[in-house]
Amino acid sequence: MSEQVSITVKVNGSIVRRMVEPRLTLLDFLRRDLGLTGTHAGCEMGACGACLVSLEGRAVHSCLMLAVQADDLSVETIEGLSENGSIADLQAAFFERNALQCGYCTPGVLITARDCLSTGGVPSRDEIRDALSGNYCRCTGYEAIVDAIEVVARMRAANAEGSK
């Protein structure tokens, strides 16, 4: 049995300190140790995107990262992004467009969408699909997801234009 390691991680804006086994993935740390079950396990090999979280502002697979690697870093999960309102427009658009069914892939998809729109501008539908290339969705057929992201991109662009 390997020794436990102390880690300090900023999770959704709060500092969390825990002792963890080195083999514990960030995914299992968030879900099991912190009860942040909005991050989902889908494949545990970085293929499906259900476990995406935002690490230092960038989407990463929490299944492909050890909790110990997140020491001293900042992680945001769907719970944090929901509570701070930063993706409220995306969530509203997904709701209106029914861009989700079972909802299992949805937190990961939202984190991808957030990254995809983070640079501003209105990406083309192909660019949105390209950004989603690592997010499996088995229910929707993707079109509604692309629609919802596109709507938010246009809305944000219009708002940015309006505020000039």
């Binding site: 099991r32 079950t37 769907i78 719970e79 989700l100």
Partner: peptide, 21 residues
């Protein structure tokens, strides 16, 4: 009409079997 339950899933508040402890 959109699905009433979808907002919960969008907020990461879904509760799937593996989430239950």
């Amino acid at each position: 009409l959109p699905r009433p339950g979808a907002k919960r899933l969008l907020a990461g508040r879904g509760r799937y079997t593996d989430d239950i402890v």
